[in-house]
Nucleic acid binder design. Structure first.
Length: 492
RNA sequence: GGGGCCAUAGGGUAGCCUGGUAUCCUACAGGACUGGGGGUCCUGUGACCGGCGUUCAAAUCGCCGUGGCCCCA
């Protein structure tokens, strides 16, 4: 009796102490929604307090991450794409031309109907995506086979009046960072090859972010409105739901017909062009944050971290000397092209550690009298590794550490993702699996069976995995023999 | 599309049932001692989502709006 009381008292005392020292700790990641919202705010990525539903403000720190992330996209596209910029507003007559396309978007369009107090003769749509802004211009730009292929992209904001509840970076009414590429080709086959190129570039992009992903061909009822087919990239989020983080659409000649985009072939014949478009939005940053982050905050890959190395001085003894050594170190690392910061703020070292961990800084260097005496710095990596490194040749050893960190966070993410994808041979199994992850289900490919799957499993069909082959199995609905599979998941 | 919960300093909360003086932690500003994992003390700053209604009196009760979260289709 007395014992248990004493234990209780001791533990409650301990827990209150823990509470006192961990006030800014995030909720557990298992509670993903709460964790996600708090992290966005505490790590200063997105301020969700802007008073319009579905429209958020980028904190400067979040925007710095965005700049680095989109820098990679530019780097990957720039060799054979040209960056451009089209207007935000699209006249109603152009917007309404392509019937299939309108059907997909008309409930989500914001309309500008007045200029000041004067009603407009022609309403203006805020782009939900830019096909109908860009393709009338393509008609003017493209005259001959020599103009093809044409590949452009723009990184712009788009507007969609979402009726489901919005989520920062994931479901927005203003998408602030929509990278949309649009390409034009002579033949259907060339366009199909371009879709493959797009998927390869996106794959490389997510590899650099150390994010594992799934590639699948969307079922016909879930393709982009007006497309021949859609290939998509999905990321498995911590709660097992999937987030579509990239799409590539083969548009065939659908828009070419509507917007009369033709070219003169070598033989003088006027032919319709074939087109593709492919996009990535700030959802890639939602994935980045969610896949790698932990209860201490962000974990950023080296390539996108606004601060790659932070130096925390341990001010004991000869403080002047410690600061001096830190400054030299900072200069040395800056000269070696590291994004390095020296934290001289008036806080305890521990408080600084927590702060920079929340910001996801890959490498922290602690420099105190003990280190200086030995000619080392104490290096703490964001994945928990903590060792002493000699100041001599530090630049090189930090690069090694950065590579190891990249490998470590990728492996952690890959293990998680692999554990979330399981084969299911029946509807019942698929239904169980999609509660916490992704099911790989035999599907004959018939639309009827697909709809039944979605209804009965109570999850969405992501589509047929690409670049994989499977053994024959029975379609989970009709039982027909098939070598096809589909991913199924609950989607964001 | 349907249903439920909620809105209080920069952030997190208590109070609301039973109407009256707004509590605590954190943050921020100034000062002192400190400093190898969220320090201590002193002083100070700062809030009831918006509108309408009921009332002598509304954070609290009612209606409408706006916004957030969750569940189901």
């Amino acid at each position: 009796m007395t014992d248990s009381k004493a234990t209780l008292k001791a533990s409650s005392k301990a827990s209150s102490k823990v509470q006192g020292s961990t006030q800014n700790k995030l909720p557990p990641k298992e509670n993903f929604s709460e964790w996600y919202h708090e992290l966005l705010m505490t790590a200063e990525i997105i301020d969700n307090r802007y008073p319009v539903k579905g429209m958020c403000v980028w904190f400067p720190f979040g925007f710095a991450i965005r700049k680095n992330v989109y820098g990679i996209i530019r780097e990957l596209l720039d060799p054979d794409h040209q960056e451009t910029q089209f207007p935000l507003m699209i006249p109603e007559n152009e917007f309404m031309k392509e019937a299939q396309h309108i059907k997909g978007f008309e409930d989500e369009v914001y309309w500008v109907t007045c200029g000041g107090t004067t009603p407009l003769d022609v309403k203006l749509a805020l782009r939900p995506t830019s096909e109908t802004a860009i393709y009338p211009m393509f008609k003017l730009w493209i005259r001959s086979h020599a103009d093809l292929p044409l590949r452009i992209y723009q990184i712009v904001n788009t507007f969609r009046y979402e009726t489901k509840h919005t989520r920062p970076l994931i479901r927005l009414r203003e998408i602030t960072s929509f990278k949309e590429a649009h390409t034009v080709h002579a033949t259907w086959e060339e366009a199909a090859a371009q879709v493959e190129v797009a998927i390869q570039r996106y794959s490389e992009f997510y590899r650099r972010l150390a994010i594992p992903f799934l590639v699948s061909r969307r079922p016909s009822w879930d393709k982009f409105p007006g497309a021949d087919y859609t290939t998509a990239i999905d990321v498995i989020m911590p709660d097992g739901r999937t987030l579509q983080v990239g799409t590539a659409h083969h548009l065939g000649s659908t828009f070419a017909r509507t917007y009369e985009i033709t070219y003169e072939a070598e033989n003088g014949e006027q032919k319709l062009v074939n087109q593709t478009c492919y996009g990535i939005s700030e959802r890639c940053i939602a994935a980045l944050i969610s896949v790698h982050g932990d209860e201490r905050g962000l974990v950023l890959p080296w390539v996108v971290a606004p601060t790659q190395v932070v130096i925390v001085p341990i001010l004991l003894g000869d403080k002047e000397k410690v600061i001096d050594v830190c400054r030299h170190l900072q200069q040395k690392l800056a000269a070696a092209q590291f994004r390095v910061q020296l934290d001289t703020s008036d806080e305890r070292p521990g408080a600084k550690f927590y702060r920079w961990e929340m910001k996801g800084v890959p490498i922290r260097l602690e420099v105190g009298p003990r280190d200086i005496e030995k000619g080392v710095v104490t290096m703490a990596r964001r994945d928990g590794v903590k060792i002493a490194l000699p100041i001599d040749g530090l630049e090189r050893s930090l690069i090694v550490q950065a590579e190891e960190l990249q490998a470590a966070i990728y492996n952690k993410a890959r293990l998680f993702a692999e554990n979330k994808v399981k084969e299911a041979s029946s509807i019942a199994e698929a239904r169980e699996m999609t509660k916490f992850g992704v099911a790989l289900v035999p599907w004959c490919g018939e639309e009827d069976c697909g709809h039944q799957l979605e209804d009965q499993v109570e999850a969405n069909l992501l589509g047929e995995p690409q670049y994989q082959s499977f053994t024959e199995a029975a379609c989970a609905v009709c039982g027909a023999k098939t070598a096809k599979r589909t991913y199924m998941a609950r989607q964001y």
